[in-house]
Computed example of a mutant assay.
Amino acid sequence: MPDGELRQRSDSRLRGARAAAYVGSGSVSAGQDVGGLGIGASNVVNGTVWARTFGTARLGQIQGMAMSATITAAALAPLVPAIALSLTGSYEFGLVTLAVVAAVALLLSFRSGVRE
């Protein structure tokens, strides 16, 4: 085994040991652990669902369009409750509006069929 490969393996083992010690010391809460696992799992699930739903022929193009829409929505969504607060003095209407939009999007997502 070349010396560089051995050094690289030991460095990664040390990083893993440091991370385990950090988590074991109670510095990271259980919620953060669960959140990290959820985010990691969602990356795998997303890739699988995209490929099964749309096929792989234009997967990159479809994911790129979806990511553009996601980023745009994430940038514009805070405006809805802010405008509601300005007009009504409360966030309630804006948050209800966002909840309705999310519910409609969820219902529309069930209409798309999975490609076999």
Results as ranks from 00 to 15, higher is better:
61 Q>N: 11
99 A>C: 07
114 V>C: 13
20 A>V: 04
104 V>G: 01
63 Q>Y: 08
75 A>C: 11
74 A>N: 10
43 N>G: 15
47 G>L: 05
89 G>P: 09
58 R>T: 03
38 G>N: 09
50 W>G: 02
30 A>W: 09
6 L>V: 09
105 A>E: 06
55 G>T: 09
65 M>S: 05
17 A>I: 09
6 L>E: 07
5 E>S: 11
9 R>M: 02
91 Y>L: 12
46 N>Y: 08
98 L>I: 12
51 A>P: 06
109 S>R: 07
54 F>R: 01
69 A>T: 07
111 R>M: 04
63 Q>T: 13
71 I>Q: 04
10 S>K: 11
106 L>S: 09
25 S>P: 03
35 G>F: 13
23 V>E: 00
105 A>S: 08
86 S>E: 10
2 P>I: 13
50 W>P: 00
20 A>D: 06
21 A>V: 07
96 V>M: 07
41 A>T: 10
99 A>P: 04
49 V>C: 02
111 R>D: 01
105 A>Q: 03
58 R>Y: 05
116 E>H: 10
84 A>I: 10
11 D>R: 03
109 S>W: 01
81 P>W: 12
38 G>E: 04
41 A>V: 09
112 S>F: 00
67 M>P: 10
102 A>I: 07
63 Q>A: 12
74 A>S: 12
22 Y>P: 00
60 G>D: 09
49 V>Y: 01
97 T>N: 08
76 L>V: 02
32 Q>S: 14
59 L>W: 08
59 L>R: 04
93 F>E: 00
10 S>L: 14
93 F>W: 07
59 L>Q: 05
45 V>E: 14
33 D>Q: 12
31 G>R: 12
35 G>R: 13
6 L>H: 06
77 A>K: 00
97 T>V: 08
38 G>A: 12
54 F>S: 02
8 Q>E: 03
85 L>M: 05
69 A>S: 12
68 S>F: 07
110 F>K: 11
2 P>K: 15
103 A>D: 08
75 A>E: 04
115 R>V: 13
39 I>K: 11
103 A>T: 10
43 N>L: 15
115 R>Y: 09
91 Y>D: 01
19 A>F: 09
35 G>D: 13
102 A>V: 11
84 A>F: 13
114 V>Q: 15
72 T>P: 00
55 G>Y: 06
94 G>F: 04
25 S>I: 03
115 R>F: 10
72 T>N: 00
19 A>H: 10
43 N>Y: 15
77 A>C: 02
116 E>C: 08
99 A>Q: 03
36 G>T: 05
15 R>K: 14
42 S>A: 15
17 A>D: 12
113 G>I: 00
13 R>Y: 01
50 W>Q: 02
24 G>H: 05
90 S>C: 14
50 W>Y: 05
106 L>G: 07
76 L>R: 05
53 T>C: 00
7 R>I: 03
32 Q>L: 14
73 A>P: 01
13 R>T: 00
52 R>P: 02
92 E>L: 10
65 M>L: 07
105 A>D: 02
100 V>I: 15
94 G>L: 04
89 G>Q: 09
54 F>Y: 08
45 V>R: 15
2 P>T: 14
12 S>N: 11
13 R>K: 00
115 R>L: 12
100 V>L: 13
